[in-house]
């Protein structure tokens, strides 16, 4: 079971969290023109990386904050965790 460092609560077991997928996906701005292709990319197409992957998790049974985690999808090693408002660098 993964051990995740919530930036608000500290180290917690994975069963307190729920997964939210690729964190690099940016929702298009409301009300702005967007091509079909760009919209479909946003809704459906993911990079599905092998290796370092920035992803969203929500500390569902804890502080309920969405957080960003950089995790290796091949080894499950976690490198960094960020608060929702911190930019992925």
């Amino acid at each position: 079971m993964l051990h995740i460092k919530c930036p608000h609560c500290g180290m917690r077991s994975q069963n307190e969290f729920s997964y939210g997928g690729d964190a690099t996906v940016k929702r298009p701005e409301l009300g702005k023109e967007i091509s079909d292709q760009d919209w479909n990319n946003f809704v459906y197409n993911r990079k599905s990386l092998r290796g370092k992957h920035w992803e969203l998790w929500q500390h569902l049974s804890g502080c309920r904050q969405w957080i960003k985690i950089q995790r290796d999808t091949a080894t499950h090693e976690i490198f960094k965790t960020l608060k929702a408002n911190e930019e992925i660098s």
Binding site: S48, T73, A74
Partner: peptide, 13 residues
């Protein structure tokens, strides 16, 4: 298991 993975190893829960 509920998260992106290529690891071919899961967890018991």
């Amino acid at each position: 298991d509920g998260y992106n993975s290529y690891a071919q190893r899961g967890n018991l829960p």
